[in-house]
Design a binder for these strands. Sequence first.
DNA 1: TGGCCGTGTCATCTC
DNA 2: TGGAGATGACACGGC
Length: 657
Amino acid sequence: MQNVKKYFTEGLIQFTILLSLIGVRVDVDSYLSGYFSPLLEINVGPSSAYIQTPFHNLRDTWDGYSVHPKCLELDYFFASRRLLDEVRALGSPRFPTQLNAWLVHQVPDSSEFQEPSNNTSNGADINSGLTLESALDNANHSDLLPEDESCLDRREECHTEIQEQCVSGPYIVTGACEDKTDGKDDGSDEEAEEPAPVTQLVLSSTLEEHLLDDPQPPSSLSGSEDAPPTTLDWSHFLSTDFDDLDPLVPQRLSDLDSDISSAISQNVSLRDAMVRGAGPYDVVPHRDESGSVTQQRGPYFRLESTNSSHSDSSPGVTAGLATLPFSSVCNATRNVTSDSALGGCLDEAVFDQINLLGLEGLDSIDPQLLGSLEGIDPRVLEDLDSDSGLSLENSSRGPTSPGTSEVSSSSSSFCEDEGGATGYSSEADSLPSKGIADYDTWSQVDLSDNVWHDHSYSSPPYFQSSAPTFSHKAIKEEPLSEEEYDRDDERELSRDELRARAMCIPFSAPQIVSMPVEEFLELLEGQALSSAQITLLRDIRRRGKNKLAAQNCRKRKLDAITGLQEEVERLQAQRDTLLREKQHTAKALGATGQRIEQLSRDVLARLRDDLGQPLTPDRYTLQCGASGRLVVQPIRRPVVTTTTSSKSDKRKKEKKP
DNA sequence: TGGCCGTGTCATCTC
DNA sequence: TGGAGATGACACGGC
């Protein structure tokens, strides 16, 4: 029973859509007890959930029907979703048909590229039946004219898609691609080369077959003579209620033109078009004259903009309101069947979801990327945020570093950045991370790449042997090799080193500097040192730390200077840019002022006063009111009072008292 | 030989 | 209150 009901409803849906295509409106809601009510919504017009415009107010009373009195936004939105599911259940969506609709839609546009003779036989007839969009269509064509070979290439790609889809027709072939039309100029031989000749096309509707047999262009099917009453109602509606929509749509026709032109210029790819928000749908209102009243949802995305183009031709209004199908041609030619009609709605719904899926796919990528990034060392990621090597240095120092707690992060890391400039503590900090064993090597191994200063500290070899009781972690590192001992002996020792040696202090300067305060205090207390030795140890430690601090301070200073220089350059560039913009604005303002002045003169020259004399700019001026009205006003010259009169007045005033 | 630069060191301040 | 860091100022050596 469920299947029977399903088939019944499906057939009813198709029949309803077919009727709606020919202008007969059927309220399916009353038959389908609400479950298939979305069909009515689809028939009625665009979903306000998509358009986000107040046009649903008009839609509610459109054609005398009260569509959905409550919760229009959500209802339409979910209705579209339900319809999508239903159509999916009905069968596979026919995207090729929809694609052909797009291509057919391009027929009048490409007619500009065609020979006049082609227009007479193919797509030109489509244009012949158009009345509403003549001006807009011309604008589109004018926009298309400058299009170069890229557009042709796009059309060739489009043509390829047609062939691949194996669903094509004579109008599509001739209209979609210019090269194909050229081939038709040469003769009908080109058609033989078509991989999908017309006779081999499989069409899903009898009407389509009729169209194929009938050389008459698709638009003629829904010509003005056979236009259903609904189309007339629409025309009447559009012509009468348009002014009411004016405040709702402040955009101008030029905006629509630009949109349409852009949409046409990038028309070929269906995916692109769908992603772009169904831009080509804006173009479609051309086919409104065809009379098919299928409530395509084409204008959903662009309803706001299309409605704004209210001026003369009002094709945008046609499209926007309704719903008047962009694909009237395709509807008339191919999508007249229920499948096609559903496909018109379905395809958008499907592609909406595809777009959503695409976006969701992006979201789904992130975890993958994150997952792939999991294998990366977190420190590397931290480096990306680190503007300097300071934090890196801290992380690389490792727990075995004796100076981790003692030496500040900035100071120790700075020495690493400097390539081991002259900081012993820096070397002491960096050594463990580099696998260098002992602090005694700190001054020789790495530092001297760039700078080797005499003031650097080093501990003599005998310090190593003479400090067996020192429990610092650094001492546990690998001992110095004999070569390193020799080099340490050979190199010139600093003053503190010499003093330490002279006073038989059993610790190296790096050890003294890098060890924590607690250990240093324990060292002073537990080693039974003399006061001179303690003072020297404190001085060594103080000077060593101050050295690192000075290095850090200098580096920060350089960084600050560099940053300020960059800031200065950036601000100078910004200043130059602003100056250029100012000049351009001044030029534009001057040109506009001159143009306004010229226009004022022209207007005044055409006007006459009461005496029949032409108005001169010296006496009259044009004022533009807030309402946009242009008013001619006489120039009021200020009364010039001479100095003598003012003086006389003063005298009079003085005499009066 | 004087200037520049890098570095170490001191004095001072702040935390 | 002492330690540590920051910083200006100075000295020194190398180029």
